[in-house]
Amino acid sequence: MCSAARTFMASFSVCVRGLFPVVWLALQCKQRTTHVYGPGILDGRHFRYNERKGKLWNETRMMLNFAGSAGGDVWGLTVVNPNFRLFDKVVSGSRMTMFRGMGWAANNGGGHFEFNTSARDSFIRSTDDLIKVRGGNIVTENLVLWQSYNGGTFQFGWAGLHLVNITHRTASVIENEWRAPEVWETYDTRPNNAVVSLVDTNPADPAQLAGPFVWQDLQIDGDVSHPLSLHLENGFLGNMLFDGLTISGKVTRFAFATAVEGSATIANVTFRNFTIEGKLISHLDDPAFRFHHAG
């Protein structure tokens, strides 16, 4: 156990097993493949939030950081009270299993999933964008997610608009704490505050979001402001399938989709076995659906 924050620099192939019950440090994995096996806790409670731009706790130093390494597996680890994100990049070829992340301060969100990565059997409480994809052949399965007052739960766009073959199976969003704006037609909400959201961060780069993008057995507990938010200025987004989408509470506005006419296309978005408040939704003009589209 460390009495002050330290950084573990893994510059060689290493396997960390059986971490102490609580470790006050950040784990920085560099260069070669690194595997982290718990159970153990990385606790960032000693960082000073008002100094998060400083040298020691700079936000580029995540609690769990694989950027610059050849990746590795994470099994059974818990990260709490991070200085910034709960984890940074899940590097290509890496797997995350039985991970627990709990953040309470602003920007305590998730990280970026690169090509050929996965996350399974995990719980994450996030106060920012949670599952951000930046590649293809990505799978998440059996996740329990608590989305706080900021950010999207499943996020496209922040780190790339060239994505293929992404599957999310059996996810339960047990809380989503942000609220809907008062005037939808003026689009006065941040486009990333939705359960599934697309943020077009670089309109000059045509998006190539050809899919398939699949959500199987996605459950959203309680009331939700807007489960789906898609905003695209240039390029194509299509081949999205929601199979087994269940929303237990009320929906303020199911979706807000905007595509700039003549420059962008959103197409082939399909819903199967879709229920709101126990009612099966079978057609788009159902009053419970509350779909809004502009452009």
Results as ranks from 00 to 15, higher is better:
185 E>L: 14
134 R>F: 08
283 H>F: 07
238 G>D: 03
176 N>G: 11
29 C>Q: 09
40 G>V: 00
36 V>D: 04
144 V>D: 10
43 D>N: 07
241 L>G: 02
186 T>G: 06
255 A>E: 12
25 L>N: 05
115 F>E: 11
62 M>V: 07
12 F>K: 11
110 G>C: 00
27 L>F: 10
153 T>E: 05
31 Q>G: 13
295 G>H: 05
174 I>Q: 15
120 R>H: 10
200 D>G: 08
216 Q>Y: 13
78 T>K: 03
143 L>N: 10
129 D>V: 02
199 V>N: 11
191 P>L: 07
192 N>L: 08
109 G>D: 04
86 L>V: 02
186 T>C: 12
95 R>E: 03
152 G>R: 05
227 P>H: 05
30 K>D: 13
110 G>V: 02
254 F>Y: 15
291 F>A: 10
17 R>F: 12
30 K>W: 06
282 S>Q: 15
154 F>G: 01
253 R>D: 03
229 S>W: 09
48 R>W: 09
177 E>A: 14
227 P>K: 06
116 N>Q: 13
34 T>H: 10
145 L>P: 02
173 V>D: 10
29 C>R: 05
10 A>F: 12
19 L>S: 06
181 P>K: 09
93 G>H: 04
286 D>Y: 06
160 G>E: 09
183 V>I: 15
83 N>Y: 02
160 G>N: 13
40 G>E: 01
104 W>N: 12
52 R>M: 02
199 V>E: 11
188 D>E: 15
184 W>L: 13
177 E>T: 11
10 A>W: 07
126 S>L: 05
188 D>I: 12
7 T>C: 11
255 A>W: 12
138 I>R: 04
278 G>C: 09
10 A>N: 11
60 T>A: 15
44 G>C: 10
218 L>H: 04
274 F>T: 01
180 A>Y: 12
164 V>H: 15
218 L>F: 08
232 L>S: 04
287 P>L: 05
42 L>G: 00
286 D>S: 07
287 P>W: 03
43 D>C: 03
187 Y>T: 07
39 P>I: 03
36 V>W: 06
269 V>M: 07
288 A>D: 04
246 T>V: 08
254 F>D: 01
235 G>D: 11
2 C>H: 06
215 W>N: 01
121 D>Q: 13
38 G>V: 00
53 K>Q: 13
233 E>I: 04
245 L>G: 04
133 V>D: 05
31 Q>R: 12
42 L>R: 00
6 R>I: 02
146 W>H: 14
244 G>D: 05
255 A>H: 12
253 R>A: 06
122 S>H: 04
28 Q>V: 07
54 G>E: 10
110 G>F: 03
58 N>S: 04
130 L>F: 08
15 C>H: 07
78 T>V: 06
3 S>L: 14
153 T>R: 06
154 F>K: 05
195 V>E: 06
110 G>Q: 00
102 M>G: 02
44 G>D: 11
93 G>R: 03
8 F>M: 03
210 A>L: 14
258 T>R: 13
47 F>Y: 13
237 L>Y: 15
67 A>W: 09
105 A>V: 05
121 D>L: 13
99 F>K: 00
55 K>E: 11
134 R>W: 06
14 V>R: 09
111 G>N: 02
222 G>A: 08
120 R>F: 07
276 I>Q: 01
55 K>D: 15
128 D>I: 02
49 Y>D: 15
288 A>K: 01
